[in-house]
Computed example of a mutant assay.
Amino acid sequence: MPDEVPGRTGKVTDPRALRAYAHPLRMRLIGLLRSEGPMTATQAAARLDDNVPNCSFHLRQLAKYGFAERVAGADGRERPWRATTPFTSWDDDSDDPAMKAAADELNALMLAVFVRRAQDYLAVRADEPTEWRVAAGFGDTLLHVTASELRELTGTIDALLARYDERITDPAKRPPGSRPVMMVQLVLPRGVVPPDDRRAGSDRD
């Protein structure tokens, strides 16, 4: 993955932690904590239409690997959970077979989540206000770039998106008329690497 904006993400370097993260309910739980703030297992279960013991177990597993943690509650009786970082990242340049396999497993799960959310949006898109139908949607662009140029480009995009981070945790920062929007980033090289580049590693930093 590209270089992150400092302080914005928690980087996972342990394949065991990455495999623990690659679970549909755990990813939904972390997404919920990040978008709505700290909450108890009971509250999370109600939001996700799941049962409390199941959510409690998976929140503990997320805490075990550093993705979530307990915080003080308002009434001092039940301590809610919160996400430890706004985002999660991992390296895709590891030569460790276990890390490669764990990253592929997580990437496959994420792709399935993205496709499902896109399908959910299409199912209701006709009922969206015109201004939102115009602003949202799908598209793609073909580029001819080197690997280092691509990293620079995605880093620039990440820095631009980071300008809106404070609105995630502070509702007061959200302007009137704003709503949650999921921006999916898929960077998909096409074709094969030229033989000369494979031998020489000509585009390595």
Rank of each mutant, 00 (worst) to 15 (best):
P24G: 08
W132Q: 11
L29P: 09
A83M: 04
T130M: 12
V52W: 14
G191T: 01
P38F: 06
A68S: 06
Q185Y: 01
R133W: 13
M39F: 02
T156Y: 04
L153F: 08
T84W: 05
P38E: 06
T13R: 01
A172E: 13
R125Y: 14
R174A: 13
D120Y: 04
D14A: 13
A22T: 08
F138P: 04
A103W: 03
M39Q: 10
R167E: 15
L109N: 03
V52D: 15
K64I: 02
S89K: 00
V192G: 06
R198G: 11
F67L: 10
T42L: 10
H144E: 15
A101Q: 15
L106I: 10
N54G: 14
T141R: 13
G7D: 06
Q61E: 14
S89D: 01
M99A: 14
R19E: 14
M99Q: 10
V113I: 11
L122S: 15
A68V: 02
W90G: 01
T13C: 01
R190I: 15
H58V: 01
T146E: 11
L150Y: 00
F138I: 07
P86E: 09
D140Y: 06
R125D: 12
V71A: 04
A147F: 08
P195T: 09
L122R: 14
Q43Y: 07
H23T: 01
H58F: 13
W81T: 00
R79Y: 08
F67E: 07
V181K: 06
T146D: 09
T13W: 00
A103N: 00
E128H: 06
A72W: 04
M39Y: 09
D205T: 02
Q119K: 03
V115F: 11
A74I: 05
R133H: 08
M182D: 11
V193G: 05
D75Q: 07
Q119L: 10
E78Y: 06
E36D: 10
W90F: 03
R60F: 12
L150I: 02
Y164K: 01
P53Q: 13
E149Y: 02
L29W: 03
L111E: 14
T42S: 13
T40D: 12
D91V: 03
A68K: 04
